[in-house]
Nucleic acid binder design. Sequence first.
DNA 1: TGAACATATGTAAATGTGTTCATATGTTTA
DNA 2: TAAACATATGAACACATTTACATATGTTCA
Lengths: 108, 108
Amino acid sequence: MDNTAENNQKFTAEMPDLEVLFELADLFKVFGDSTRIRIMFTISENEMSVLSIAEALNMEQSTISHQLRVLRQNKLVRVRRDGKQIYYSLDDDHVKKIIEMGLDHVLE
Amino acid sequence: MDNTAENNQKFTAEMPDLEVLFELADLFKVFGDSTRIRIMFTISENEMSVLSIAEALNMEQSTISHQLRVLRQNKLVRVRRDGKQIYYSLDDDHVKKIIEMGLDHVLE
DNA sequence: TGAACATATGTAAATGTGTTCATATGTTTA
DNA sequence: TAAACATATGAACACATTTACATATGTTCA
């Protein structure tokens, strides 16, 4: 059984509970903002402090902080404090894969 | 080179142009609404008419029609007219895979 | 052709979201 | 401890989104 068939089988099972569908939509909502997408790209290779991210994207520190909170709440980033700075990085390869699937669709 | 490494390489390449990032965010925005997610599940196995979808989800016909337009504009559904009815189905396995990746994250 | 049916669309109301400004919280170091 | 710095948070505004209602458009068939 190849990967595609496996995926199809999984997908075409019964529709998940409404609650799960809401969670799913909420997850995608997080990816549905260009600032958050840019943050995710920015911290995809190396962890970065909040100010560095803000500078890299040329946006307000508070804007980035607000959006990092959304990413945090949805468990999409890892957080590490070192002295005054707080470093953010992407949580796992899962996140990258979701973005890649989207990129594939957009770029085709 | 295994699949994961391949994906990482693709992902960690330079950040795409701003324009692409906007498109990417717009794509995910489409997945970020529970009504549209439910529609996508509903038509994932068999094509369905607009009214059937509306009945299946117990929502107004116009609501479904509005959301189907969003899905259409983003090339996520296929459309086929047969007489008075218009049948919608998911466009490709791409779409299913994006949803599955999301489900994996939500269900873990 | 006209009535009946299926779908699409315009509009308006309610709700949600992103950003900024001001400020609070937490950490370091002089 | 106080000043300086990094980050987080509350509030307000502008803007976007979802939905429902009313109605237009398009198709069939009597």
